Computed example of a mutant assay.
Amino acid sequence: MKKVELIATATFGLEAIVKREVIDLGFEDIKTDNAMVTFKGDLSSIPKANLWLRCADRVLLKLGEFNATTFDQLFEQTKALPWEEWIPEDGKFTVTGKSINSKLFSVPDCQSIVKKAIVEKLKKKYNVTWFSETGPEYTVQVSLLKDKAILTIDTSGTGLHKRGYRENSVQAPIKETLAAALVKLSFWNKDRLLLDPFCGSGTLPIEAAMIGRNIAPGLNRSFASEKWSIFKPEIWKNARVDALKSIDQNVQLKIKGTDIDPEAIEIAKENAFEAGVDDCIEFDQKPLGELDFKDEYGVIICNPPYGERLSEVEEVEKLYTSMGNYFENLNTWSKYIITSFEEFENFYGKKADKKRKLYNGRIKVDYYQYFGPRPPKSIT
């Protein structure tokens, strides 16, 4: 089967998590760089990576990499790449681009040069002068960093955070990929209670349930490369069948999501149903002060309000103080809290055991981690 080189793009700070996922999926020649993890496989790696990567943003097919300081170099070296092996005569392809610290700094010009080079290559292959572009979509990206060009085709289409279950959401929801990463960065496992006291539309509990049940995050959506002519139908079909067989229907999960907003709770229940995990998450409309921490050991993972607007700062300061008071006696629990509020620890009342810098969309955030003791083996 044809060998391919793929790039899993990642939000800043999540490269190590994505690398671990790539390793666990059994891929080869893995390399990590800023915001990306590169790896190799065969054609079947494309559906496998798209279906299973929880924390990556996209899966890109790498066509080539070279130095380019002039438009002539960009044109000739792009034209030399094997575009005809991937894009059929009726293929619809667009070119996106970005340039950082490179002599070729005009992104529109780079896009135009790359498009022209691909067209010239395909003209020669198909012996035509005009393309209908009525077939499957191929999004080509030219990425220039310090005069090094990387040419890719996007195999995912819509970003991987779009799982297909979140039809509705509340204001300022957390991305599904980041939510999955927060769970993976915690010490939660499927035998322990997980609580999100600010669950909103339920993304964190749902992602945890999908991890606990081993549900492939891309199982309920489609991908751009599913329609590519290079794939025999059974390649994608087999990948989906394998993913379905991997689901653990017997696992008993203890996951709870609460929120003060009754509308958010209803949305969370709907989303959990769409994700196929409504039977293993308990959602309840409750304010923070009414939570009952009966379990001796547990894990709290939450994405509370940040106070991005000046009018909300005082309210958020009070909330973080209340969180510190309510969680103070939970000595055997682990707490994981993500926020952009830089004074969080001061109002929470305790310095985190570990703090990790991440991004929630374009917002710079910190992931505050408070570690509880390891439960006895009889409990875990």
Rank of each mutant, 00 (worst) to 15 (best):
24 D>P: 10
210 M>R: 13
63 L>N: 02
78 T>M: 00
137 E>W: 08
68 A>L: 02
150 I>V: 10
344 F>W: 12
192 R>L: 14
41 G>F: 08
49 A>I: 06
178 L>V: 03
102 S>G: 07
316 V>P: 07
55 C>T: 14
253 L>N: 12
208 A>L: 05
40 K>M: 11
316 V>C: 05
282 E>N: 10
163 R>F: 03
9 T>C: 10
194 L>Y: 06
228 W>N: 01
146 K>N: 13
348 Y>N: 07
57 D>W: 06
2 K>P: 14
253 L>V: 03
224 A>K: 02
181 A>K: 00
371 F>K: 15
289 G>I: 00
107 V>G: 14
130 W>A: 04
266 E>H: 00
277 V>G: 11
108 P>G: 01
190 K>T: 09
14 L>S: 00
261 D>Y: 01
240 R>I: 04
170 V>R: 08
167 E>Q: 07
335 K>W: 12
336 Y>P: 00
368 Y>H: 15
295 D>M: 02
317 E>N: 08
320 Y>E: 09
126 Y>G: 07
255 I>A: 13
200 G>K: 05
286 K>A: 03
92 K>G: 05
244 L>V: 09
361 G>K: 14
271 N>R: 11
304 P>C: 01
11 T>M: 14
134 T>C: 12
209 A>W: 05
335 K>M: 14
325 N>G: 13
301 I>G: 00
327 F>S: 12
218 G>P: 12
274 E>L: 15
243 A>S: 03
50 N>E: 05
47 P>N: 08
241 V>Q: 11
51 L>N: 03
6 L>V: 09
124 K>Q: 12
176 E>N: 04
101 N>C: 00
343 E>H: 07
26 G>K: 03
135 G>V: 09
233 P>I: 05
322 S>P: 03
39 F>L: 00
266 E>P: 00
117 A>F: 02
180 A>S: 15
54 R>K: 12
245 K>V: 04
30 I>T: 11
16 A>V: 07
219 L>N: 06
319 L>W: 02
54 R>N: 10
168 N>T: 06
278 D>G: 13
209 A>E: 07
179 A>P: 01
317 E>Q: 15
255 I>G: 09
78 T>N: 02
137 E>K: 15
120 E>K: 08
370 Y>T: 01
314 E>Q: 14
93 F>P: 09
197 P>A: 13
99 S>L: 05
92 K>Y: 12
144 L>T: 05
325 N>P: 00
15 E>P: 11
155 T>N: 04
203 T>C: 11
226 E>K: 01
7 I>D: 04
1 M>V: 07
37 V>Q: 09
33 D>N: 13
263 E>Y: 05
125 K>R: 02
265 I>D: 03
323 M>G: 00
292 D>A: 02
192 R>I: 04
191 D>Q: 08
251 V>G: 03
